[in-house]
């Protein structure tokens, strides 16, 4: 695929921004996402190519704007759905429930 992920050699992205003393994770959920990705990989839910595929199929706007770990969420969620472990509706419902709980 030559989708938006294939950025090598493209112009217009501007300077490389470097954060000094960057922490391993900027937010707690990033660490959870990393470990969930590895746990699902270890459980055989996907291989490397299956992990990459949904990221390469992301909407180009979403791909460019989202953080690294948001991309991982997209692909782990999609792979878990494809493997029949969860449904989109279940994730949507739980997500909505948690957002409602936070707002309350």
């Amino acid at each position: 695929m030559n989708g938006i992920h294939d950025v090598g050699g493209k112009h217009g992205f501007g300077p490389v921004l470097v954060e000094q003393n960057e922490p391993y994770f900027h937010e707690e959920w990033e660490g959870r996402m990393l470990s969930m990705m590895i746990a699902c990989f270890a459980a055989g839910i996907y291989n490397v190519d299956q992990f990459r595929h949904p990221i390469e199929k992301m909407d180009p706007r979403h791909y460019l704007m989202s953080s690294y770990y948001e991309k991982w969420l997209c692909t782990v969620e999609q792979n878990c759905i494809d493997a029949g472990i969860v449904t989109r509706e279940e994730v949507d419902a739980r997500h909505a429930q948690l957002m409602k709980g936070k707002a309350a």
Partner: peptide, 20 residues
């Protein structure tokens, strides 16, 4: 374009995967 409350969606997925 971005997932709202992305950390909570991670939590949602983790809790479902753990339950299953």
């Amino acid at each position: 374009v971005l997932i709202p409350e992305v950390g909570l969606r991670v939590k949602a997925l983790e809790s479902l995967l753990a339950e299953k």
